[in-house]
Nucleic acid binder design. Sequence first.
DNA 1: TCCCAAATCTGAAACGTTACAGATAGGCTA
DNA 2: TAGCCTATCTGTAACGTTTCAGATTTGGGA
Lengths: 379, 379
Amino acid sequence: MYTPSVHFVQILKRYRQGKSISCNRPGAVMKAKTSDRISGQDAGPPADGERPTLKTIAFMAGLGVTTVSRALKDAPEIGQATKNRVQLIAKQIGYRPNRAGVRLRTGKTNVISLVLNAQSEIMGLTSNMVYGITEVLSETPYHLTVTPYSVENDPMQPIRYIVETGSADGIIMSRTEPNDARVRYLTEHGIPFATHGRTEMGIEHPFHDFDNEAFAYRAVKSLGERGRRKVAMLAGPSPSVTYYRHLDRGFARAIGEGGVGSVSFSGIDVDTSLASIRDRMVEIMSGASRPDGIVCCSGSAAIAIVAGIEAAGLKIGEDVDLASKQSTDVLKWFRPQIIVFNEDVRQAGRELARAVLGRISGRDAKDLQTLSYPGESND
Amino acid sequence: MYTPSVHFVQILKRYRQGKSISCNRPGAVMKAKTSDRISGQDAGPPADGERPTLKTIAFMAGLGVTTVSRALKDAPEIGQATKNRVQLIAKQIGYRPNRAGVRLRTGKTNVISLVLNAQSEIMGLTSNMVYGITEVLSETPYHLTVTPYSVENDPMQPIRYIVETGSADGIIMSRTEPNDARVRYLTEHGIPFATHGRTEMGIEHPFHDFDNEAFAYRAVKSLGERGRRKVAMLAGPSPSVTYYRHLDRGFARAIGEGGVGSVSFSGIDVDTSLASIRDRMVEIMSGASRPDGIVCCSGSAAIAIVAGIEAAGLKIGEDVDLASKQSTDVLKWFRPQIIVFNEDVRQAGRELARAVLGRISGRDAKDLQTLSYPGESND
DNA sequence: TCCCAAATCTGAAACGTTACAGATAGGCTA
DNA sequence: TAGCCTATCTGTAACGTTTCAGATTTGGGA
């Protein structure tokens, strides 16, 4: 049994009184920080107002920094009494580990990086994602940094930067593609990440996805139930982001089951500017083969579609029905007639945060894949 | 004149060939990193695949780390030829300073923290703010971290955390109050920051603000021009955030100039839930003393107001006019009849980023205060 | 010839943390 | 009594950077 000869309370007391004290170990006398030239570790209390470090606690407890470091992380080789003392002092003086010190020593950054496309902002998506993520991270030592890239730039650029500079322990990214270079790169480099959306590369990785296939399927079905017989979908530009494929698949499946026919939109997709969508919709809805039901996967595009429909002299809910995904309530307020399916982006943020953290702590990628389903909120 | 005896190209070449080489200084032979027990600094090249450090460059150039460190930051006491060599090598091997090392040594984090209220999200505000900020930061070594707090929490909590842990060099925050505890605290602690919105504390600090007084004033005037004679404003909860005061002031000034009378809304404000706003609007607009013009400072609240008005059987642009601030185009698409005034939040983000950076680099707070004016985008 | 100043460059120390390889004391065994 | 094991605790080194206080060389002046 190892018994420290001086109890910390005495030291703490004398320390608080500003007295020069000597420790239970040789050489441990109070002295100025800068004039510390002796090789021993317990050089003395820090100057007033400075942030407490392990050294501060070590001095106050009459222990070595190593012991303090271990005591604070509940290492098995530290006595229970010592742990209690150390943890109490740490709490009392408001000790917080210096992130730079930890990072330099261990390489662990305690940072999660959210990589975003700064252009493709669908109403409120980014905000809610950020809030969802931070909600989860706030209970951990992790911070969130945001690293956007513009469309003109290579999506790989921010990823490479993060990996090369080791500036994050994990990455969350969106606009996932079927064959995603970022996923491949990060997998090769063994960096934990989670994607919003799935890939089709045969690489298992953490993701969270909204079931867009289910959404498109149910959207068509809903339109059919309202007697619509000729529906169209505002799809994504063909081969890029994965979720566009899922939309197509769900749409095709619903159509394939019969009862409802389809026409296709040409010249526009969800990435087209709102003004172009509106203008094209006027043309389409004025034409002979106009659809009587429309599926749309973006709240803002839905607004442009409505504008076009009404500019063509038709009425939502009467001449034509619109079923759309929404991530904020705006659409419901906009035209109550719109059939809306909710995607909870904040929840997605939470799931994604949990997924990266899980991956960081070594959990299997397969157990970190979640899907959320469209919530039909109206009628 | 100090002349290194071995030119770096030779060293670099041999280094690249993996050959064991000896440097121009004694003791500088290639050896494994871990077995480095000699006190000299130039221990040898790092293991393959590891990130280059100053040591790597120092070894390759046949210089000391100190010299390399200084050469990279263009210190005056380093010869021009050496600077060129060092900078060339650094570029070639893709050297990037280790942030943890810098941070530990200098205390500089190279981080800007955006402190946000996670609840009061006005459509797209956060996203655009974030994008604006990162646009500016992307040309600097600064990273952006997001630190949200929930309404239930003390707004001071994240601020204290950042200051106590020294986790950022500068802070950007919103929902500025006339007498803002955060501003006082940060000023006392000498931490650079910029606020979105102004205070009324007599403390000079960097800010960016939208001129809400001008907005409210012009909104009332616009309504007057359309023949509206009894206008009301959906104001903020009285004493809190500064910009509500500016709204009141602008509104009062416009009313004071005559021609237009005012009625007041009771029971709701911009922070009320959208459903409550809608419900209350139905009551108000069904009453005898209903306004014929409404001023609203939030896009989402405007949507709820419109819903209420229409539920009461009235038409926007005919029975009543609505003038609202918007930060995305949604309102314009929602009801083209709404009189909208644009606030460019992305631009605000840019200004705020420039303001904190300016403060960090020691510029005077007074020179870092900007105001933006409502852009009337329709008619 | 000697010394000094200017121009360059240098190692050691420090920031705060953790990993490594012991140290120390007490109790127990033989 | 000597020796060993266990339970605790320890100092040193290292992560990569910058600062401090010198070193070293060269050229020039006395």
